[in-house]
Design a protein around this nucleic acid. Structure first.
Lengths: 194, 194, 194, 194
DNA sequence: AATGAATGAGAATTCATTCAT
DNA sequence: GATGAATGAATTCTCATTCAT
């Protein structure tokens, strides 16, 4: 029973991710989601009370994926800036994969009352990055002029903004994006080394 | 006539700003906007062809206000980092004033086909900042390790992300926000000086 | 404007009376009412928030009709029992005309929260009848053993129950109904004369 | 097995009586009845083919109760008007107990096709009362001016209407209801004695 | 230009009923 | 017999848009 339950719920979430990304929230009908998830329309309401209430679940999926990608992509045996480079790669990569969803999630969360949940979502990113900064600082790999948590927040915002700029707006060629990533890394290096 | 015309259009935009901010785009009906703007529902369509077509006008309001604020707040007779400090203040200030709108604009623009216009919107910011960087660089006030336009983009993203983090999510006390702004400034200083 | 307004509202009420009577409340869709009233479905909601909220208006129609019929049918120049005879005729007549609605109104009112309004509806009947009793009593046409208002209520209940029994349940032939009415009159005469 | 079977059926009927009375037929879902009866939703259909098909069973409950109450409350060793007094008490009592159901039964029966069954339901009342009248008439306790069956129908309608008026609409205090009952008795006495 | 009643296509939502377990 | 998750037809209700005044 539980298996079937999870299965349907997941199918709904995945269908919503796909369709919201493809056509936007407003143009996605509950009936579309049901069709895509291969369930009856009424079944949708057994799992979610409304269209927007799927948003937190979608956000969770994105966040888990980002964290998992970071965990598996960023090798532990690199030096600090090697890790940052791979972090940048990962953030850009996941952002590209889900670019249609990024605006959607903002919209969906701000349209409803799920914004609070979104705040907490960043916690894992910040703590992962804070830890990284602390140990690099201990090893004298970097030179922190401000608190490591604050630095982590600034860095994350900087990288995320660059990735969103690259994929949401600019629709650049690959070369330019490579350059963007390189520049972000150089900028960060400059900001964190003596 | 022209005055009345402008008046009504502005009233519609302002009503939309208010209501989209308060209740989200989806929950705001044309009838709400009409009521708030003290016009008949049909009159709305004399000025805008659809609900979402108000979005660019709303974005324009925010952008103009941001640019105008920057122009009037950032004194020309300060040194580079004095100007950056005032830029940070201004971005935080305008973001706070329109915090409900930020997500809305993302949503409204991505939902419709006005995303392209949004991209251009950042142009003025970037060029203003690029100019600032270029002259500071010439004066040896700063030390650029990457292209000035790229730096401008990174800086803008960094500052904007910090402001949004401060007001959209964290609901911080004033003190913490002061600290945020200070940290952002320190971080930028470190990134731009030898 | 007002004329148009009243017109549509009335058309909705009349359509509802007709359809509720013909097919019952549950089997009548809002769309049926709209079609019968020759309006768009959405227009229904400009006048009534829900299907059941039409019930009080329907009850009003029935009551007004009953009162108006009584006023116009019961000649002022008859003696007391002549008037009662005409009252009985009228109640039977109006009940027959709207027999399908009687159960419906009970149902519709008890299903929703309009029962209170229904209570007041009987007031006019009672006061009309009470006046009649009082003057007949003064003229020594009748002999009241209990309070005139109480008598009025009992009489009304008695007559109404007889009419409903005749038309709702028994589906009698005309002859039997004539007999019913005669018997009711005889019974009442007996109860009100010395 | 039979015991369990009866048990569940009764639980369904009682649940329906409770919920129909509390929230009306239309607002009571099968799922509500199932929950209240502590059975699974599908189980409902093992006992009743549809929601409305419970109505006759509910009506039966009320009628049996009424008849049983009359049988056990009205002492055989009283004179005619003593019995009528106790009849009035009983009808008022049972009506009060099931006041929410009275409208519901009208509604439920008229909505479905069970109206015919309802007609028959009154048969026992009428024949019980007709017998009573006939023997009282033989004993010269009363003086009938019309047929005893017709009298029985009128009397029953009169008493029932008074009881419904008292409990469904007026929400009176106990004192007033006592007065009502007394008045009904006096009225009937007057109507049945020389 | 302005109005706001009217429209009706289109979406959300409900819930009696089924059926595999 | 019992269960309750799943179904999807059927309805209600919304609301952007039109148009006669």
């Amino acid at each position: 029973m539980v298996i079937i339950y999870m299965d349907k719920k997941e199918r709904i979430i995945n269908a919503a991710i796909k369709l919201f990304g493809e056509k936007g929230i407003e143009n996605t009908k509950i009936s579309d989601i049901a069709k895509e998830a291969r369930i009856a329309q009424g079944t949708f309401y057994l799992y979610f009370p409304s269209k927007l209430s799927v948003m937190p679940a979608i956000a969770d999926v994105m966040i888990s994926e980002m964290i998992q990608s970071i965990r598996s992509n960023v090798s532990t045996d690199l030096d600090f800036f090697g890790k940052i480079e791979q972090l940048i790669d990962t953030v850009f990569e996941v952002t590209e994969k889900h670019k249609e969803l990024v605006g959607i999630i903002y919209a969906g969360l701000s349209a409803s009352d799920f914004l609070d949940e979104w705040v907490d979502a960043y916690e894992p990113y910040y703590s992962w990055l804070t830890n990284l900064l602390d140990s690099a600082n201990k090893n004298n790999e970097i030179h922190l002029v401000i608190d490591s948590l604050q630095t982590a927040k600034i860095l994350w915002g900087l990288i995320e903004a660059a990735a969103e700029r690259a994929y949401l707006f600019d629709e650049k060629e690959k070369n330019l994006i490579l350059q963007d990533k390189k520049d972000v890394l150089i900028f960060i290096k400059k900001a964190l080394t003596r």
